[in-house]
Design a protein around this nucleic acid. Sequence first.
DNA 1: CGTGCATTCTATGTATACATAGGAGCTTCA
DNA 2: TGAAGCTCCTATGTATACATAGAATGCACG
Lengths: 235, 235
Amino acid sequence: MWFVYTETPTAGTTAPVRASERAYRQLRGEILDGILPAGTGLLEIEQSARIGVSRTPLRAAIARLIADGLVAGRPGRGFMVTEMSMDSIRELYEVRRALEEHAARIAADRRDPAVFLALRDQFLAAPELLAQGETGLHRYYDLIDEFDDAVDEAVANPFLVGALATVRTHLARIRRLARGNPARLRAAAAEHLLIIDAIIAGDTSLAAHATHVHLQQSLTNVLAAIQGQPTGPVA
Amino acid sequence: MWFVYTETPTAGTTAPVRASERAYRQLRGEILDGILPAGTGLLEIEQSARIGVSRTPLRAAIARLIADGLVAGRPGRGFMVTEMSMDSIRELYEVRRALEEHAARIAADRRDPAVFLALRDQFLAAPELLAQGETGLHRYYDLIDEFDDAVDEAVANPFLVGALATVRTHLARIRRLARGNPARLRAAAAEHLLIIDAIIAGDTSLAAHATHVHLQQSLTNVLAAIQGQPTGPVA
DNA sequence: CGTGCATTCTATGTATACATAGGAGCTTCA
DNA sequence: TGAAGCTCCTATGTATACATAGAATGCACG
């Protein structure tokens, strides 16, 4: 059982050799994609059988998910995918604002202009990208990831980057809600351009304020999107 | 082996029944107190034997410590207590500033005045407390914990409180350095009073700025303390 | 018919056995 | 004598067996 490779080693990406890593990535991905909706009970035996690992590595995976805040241990029985209420989203954005504003400020101070100049060109082309349907959307989100990575690298602060990573993990669960709103995505791209310009200019204050504006707009949009689809709690 | 209670259930405090919880608390406490200095290698077998639990719960404890950032898995072999360089301390305070300023701002907006009025009286008595030697020092730190808890409760934001908890965990490792500097502690108490007054007054801006000042003073003091004791990396 | 208790069952917590990978040390050859 | 390769050893990663606690359910009694 422990030497059966059902999947060929993915070229380019480092294949997770450890079973606990596989279980973690799969569960995390499924939670973020909404395949495992909020409130879903995670039974060790059930999940370990489904994923194809033993209970021991699965427990390690669950432990990491708990640390991420994606899973909570229920007092009495088992574990469950954490809920994401509208209040939670507001709370998340409250922290996000503090961290991203601070990060933008620092990034504007320590950035390598060349990196953000290159990003600027890509964001300028974002509207065309968003007109290309699903694949363009995917590349747009990749672009945002690149921007986040560039900020992380400029900030050069493991603690801050780590805190941001936690926030972004939860954000990924919410991001799905903004899908199918091209107008908002184009606006967001324009807001990103403002932030990037401020960072390139080394204008710390403007970078922070532009980030504040962007996040406020983002939050408003997300909350409106939830109101629009009254399917109860967010996956 | 699994039914031997070497310690009587601590009155008042909930005794951790799970072995993984015991291992986690002990290791965490020892790291925070410097008993396990930075760079110490943690071997599963060795530590599990020392603490008196099996490898399985110990692994769970290690996993939590990794999530806390107190322990890092080394690429090749084993785990080790993370280092705390002077740069790390600066980075930590950079995040701390962002989070605590934001928290102070929110607390000033949402606080229950009665709670902070009570804290105010206690902080007013802090100088006398600090004159009482070791026990007074201990009660002073408890007082700061109470203040932090009050802020957490006023903030009422699990994400922000969680991020603050992470920062404070690392701060606890550093705090030992300020010991034996009564002048600084008295000054810190005065700075706390300023923050508390701002929170009571509902002055969000002042609360944030007073927090900024306090943290800057704290950082300066910590860095100076490290310079004073050139024992290399901080425990 | 409702409530309380006991039983059973299930899922987690723990311990341990085994496989494997990576490093340290030794040996050997140039 | 130095470097390279091999071997052994150690510590982690994984699987599984077992004990236990808590909850759900069914039964009995009021």
